[in-house]
Each structure stands twice: as structure tokens, then as C-alpha cells.
Design a protein around this nucleic acid. Structure first.
Length: 118
DNA sequence: AACGTGATTGTTGCA
DNA sequence: TGCAACAATCACGTT
């Protein structure tokens, strides 16, 4: 149950080192199609304006914490639009990965007939 | 099949 | 240029 645990001060750019389960799962994708944005990402994009609007002095920590607090205040219906965008982005990520997989696959076999687009 | 983990997303502001 | 809290996520990989 590594899920939920009060707090997980474990991830960060500093702890990039992973290696666990079996030996460090591949290193992430070579092309890194990146995943999809989170509802929070859209939520922040919309709220960051308001936060700065009501907190022109709020830098990053203020806005950050305030944003998170507000986020929880929102109801599912409020997050809905954000989640919806996240869902849309997820589909986008699917296409990204699809193209990434396709590229990876085609890149493998092709080499001469492949157009010089890239 | 089910589970676990890591990697990723976006904001601002500064050394 | 990268990292810092804030939250979600979820796709991948391992078992």
C-alpha cells in the first residue's frame, strides 16, 4: 500500500534515481512522449491568474499552497472542467505515445526509404 | 491479472 | 537552468 501515506517526500528532481522493483525499469522513453497533463495543470493555468490577481505579491510558494488549498475546495463539478481537459490531454498523450511507438518502430526498420523529413 | 513505481505535467521567482 | 511546494495521473513494468 504504497499509496497514500500522509506524505511522500520522495519524488523530486533531486531523487531522479529510481531503481527498484527489478533493477531500474528501462530509463523512461528515449523520445519521452511525455505523459498527459494533470487536472491540476489546467487548474493552475486558469487559477494562476486569479491567484496573482488577488495575490499580486504571491510568488510561487504562496500561489502554490493557495492553489492546492483552493483545488481541494473545489467540488468534483468544479474540477470536472479541469479533469475533462486532463482527460483530453490524456488522449493527446496517447497519440504522442502512439507516434512515439510508431516512430520507434519505423525508425528501426527503415533507414533508407524513410523520407528525410527528420 | 494484479500490483507498484516512477516519470511527467504546469505555475512562479530567484541564485 | 533547474528546482522548490502543490496535486493528479496513469502508463509502464515488474511480479
Amino acid at each position: 500500500m504504497p499509496k497514500e501515506a500522509s506524505a511522500k517526500p520522495k519524488r523530486k528532481a533531486a531523487e531522479k534515481s529510481a531503481e527498484k522493483t527489478s533493477g531500474g525499469r528501462a530509463k523512461k522513453d528515449p523520445n519521452a512522449p511525455k505523459r498527459a497533463l494533470s487536472a491540476y495543470m489546467f487548474f493552475s493555468q486558469d487559477w494562476r491568474e486569479r491567484i496573482k490577481n488577488e495575490n499580486p505579491d504571491a510568488g510561487f510558494g504562496e500561489v502554490g499552497k493557495l492553489l492546492g488549498a483552493k483545488w481541494k475546495e473545489l467540488d468534483e463539478a468544479d474540477k470536472k472542467p479541469y479533469v475533462e481537459q486532463a482527460s483530453r490531454d490524456k488522449t493527446r498523450a496517447e497519440t504522442e505515445k502512439a507516434a512515439y511507438e510508431a516512430g520507434e518502430s519505423k525508425k528501426r526498420a527503415s533507414s533508407a526509404d524513410e523520407d528525410a523529413s527528420e
